[in-house]
Design a protein around this nucleic acid. Structure first.
Lengths: 121, 121
DNA sequence: TCTATATTTCGCCACATAACGAAATATAAT
DNA sequence: ATTATATTTCGTTATGTGGCGAAATATAGA
C-alpha cells in the first residue's frame, strides 16, 4: 500500500502530472521541463525527485545534462498499469496538448542539451 | 485534467484509500467506517466529503443513517477505470485485508445501522 | 586553475491539509 | 415538546507541501 500512496501523492500536483504526460511523449532534459513549466529550476528539481522516489521516472546523465524518462518497467509493480491509466486519461486534455505545442517550440530552440546542437560543437 | 487531479488528491491519503477499498467490498454506513478507521466522526465525515466531491463515492440516507458506496458509474469519466486500477492494485495488501477482518467483526456487532438489528426493532 | 553552466540541496515562507473537539443540523423516540 | 442519536460543519492546531532564491555540487571549457 505504501507504494500506491506514494504514487497518489506524487501525482496530487498538477505540475508533476504535466511532467509525466510530457515524458510520455519522450525523454526530456531537466532544462526542457523547466522551460515548459516556467518554474524555478530548484522547484522542477524537487518535483522530479518526488516522481523518481515514487518509482515513476528514471534518469541518465549526459555530462552536465540529465535526461528523464518514464520508468515503465519500474521495479514497483503498480507503476506500469498506473502510467497506462493516467496517460490514457489525460492524453487529450487541453493542458497537455498545450504543453506538447510548447515542447515543439522548445525542441526547436538551441538549448544546450539538444542533440544536434551538441553534435555541432 | 481537473478531474484527474482531484482524484489523485482524494487518494493521496491512506485513510481515504482504506475507505475506498472497504467500500469495494460493499456499501457501508458512516458509523462502520468510523469504527474501522478508529478516527473521530468529524474526521471521517470530512474524508467522505472529499471522496464524494471527487466523484468517487455516492450516498443514500436511511433515517439518521447514511450509507456510502463506490460510484462506479460516476458522471466523471475517469472514475470507473481508476477504481478498477486501485482495487486491483491493493486488494491483497496487508492493510486492506486487516480492514476486511475488522469489518467482519464490526458487522457482527449490533450497530444501530445494521439491517437485522433494525428489523427487530 | 579559474570560469561557466546545469542541476540539486537547503532554508524560508505562505498556503494546504489531517486530526480533534465543539457546535450545528437532521432524524427518531418518548 | 424534549431528549437521544447520527452526521456534518466549524474553528483550532500541528504538520505537510509548493514556490522561490541562495548555496552547494557536478561537469565542461578556457
Amino acid at each position: 500500500m505504501r507504494n500506491t500512496i506514494n504514487i497518489m501523492k506524487a501525482l496530487a500536483d498538477e505540475n508533476r502530472v504535466r511532467i509525466v504526460l510530457a515524458l510520455a511523449r519522450g525523454e526530456l532534459c531537466v532544462c526542457q521541463i523547466t522551460e515548459m513549466l516556467e518554474l524555478a529550476p530548484s522547484t522542477v528539481s524537487k518535483h522530479l525527485s518526488i516522481l523518481k522516489n515514487a518509482g515513476l521516472i528514471k534518469y541518465r546523465k549526459d555530462g552536465r545534462w540529465i535526461h528523464y524518462q518514464l520508468d515503465e518497467s519500474s521495479k514497483i509493480p503498480e507503476v506500469g498499469s498506473f502510467l497506462e491509466w493516467i496517460i490514457e486519461s489525460l492524453k487529450d486534455s487541453e493542458e497537455v496538448l498545450n504543453d506538447f505545442e510548447k515542447l515543439k517550440t522548445i525542441e526547436k530552440k538551441s538549448l544546450s542539451c539538444v542533440p544536434n546542437n551538441k553534435e555541432e560543437r
